[in-house]
Design a protein around this nucleic acid. Sequence first.
DNA 1: CCCATGTCAGTATCACTGAAATAA
DNA 2: CTTATTTCAGTGGTACTGACATGG
Lengths: 173, 173
Amino acid sequence: MRHAFAESLLGKAPLGLDDVLDFLSVIWALDHALQRSSKRMEATMGITGPQRLVIRIVGRFPGISAGHLAALLHVHPSTLTGILNRLERNGWVRRRSDPRDGRRSLTGLTDKGLSVEIETEGVIENAIRRILERTPREKIQATREVLESISVELSKAWGSDPSESAGSGEEPA
Amino acid sequence: MRHAFAESLLGKAPLGLDDVLDFLSVIWALDHALQRSSKRMEATMGITGPQRLVIRIVGRFPGISAGHLAALLHVHPSTLTGILNRLERNGWVRRRSDPRDGRRSLTGLTDKGLSVEIETEGVIENAIRRILERTPREKIQATREVLESISVELSKAWGSDPSESAGSGEEPA
DNA sequence: CCCATGTCAGTATCACTGAAATAA
DNA sequence: CTTATTTCAGTGGTACTGACATGG
């Protein structure tokens, strides 16, 4: 349970790497693994991890607005613009403006995007599924709680989410 | 406990978002929180999360080689080159070539880099510390195991780590 | 006029691939 | 000559800030 990265280098547990740094390296390792998988997905199936998540969410909430999407993903609206541009350019989604509020941009899946919704799972989703299948519920629950705590703690340091908008009562669907 | 992102939008638990997608969103949320913190650190203290992690590791293993560092971080050597270039440009680390093996580049901290080592904790480290302090050991342990499983599972899909090198017996210190 | 929504321009890090330079 | 180590060039995605256009 200790000093994972030092062990991988020296093959033994050395020095007094404190627990914070040790746990931190586990988290960054996960982060790197995610980035790598995302990059690989882009090369093999033409879609990144975040892009696929957006497609899945749009599948659940057809016609969702950009602001709502940004809030769900906890990203800045301008970041979402970039992601949606790439998704639209490659034909996964289609945007139109809200007839009832011209400022809003509503996003829906194209046929190509729908096919992804149904189709075989993405690499990352498969990995998660395998983990969930073989791990006791309590353990997953504990993990979820810790991860959410970390996210909250990280966000608390400076203001809240990057997207402080889209708070209206309008349901996306 | 379920459908975290849908709840945040609608204020109630709707639809049948499957567990995989739900857990996935928790993981991406953590990822985003990390990226955001890293960005913020860059603005306020002139150093990103990964950069700080590199400084901490170099602090533990003075004179570590680039290959070893890349292996510890699970990144491609060329990725590390970029990180080290930025660290060196801003005066955190210094590189010199190994007198015993001219191919190797050894990295050490400058005085400025050492000060970070001692000095107050980075934002991310503080967040982790607070979580570790208030969470039972078993729960942290469970989290660590699950996270490591995910990293392994993600890496298994395609070959192993990006850095398949630096495997020699030479200790970095 | 003021606020909300979304996009655009500009900038930076990270991460890769593939090629090249240098040394063992 | 072959292999190992690292860097470099080029590409692309994510994420921000700050400005802007447009609509309510």
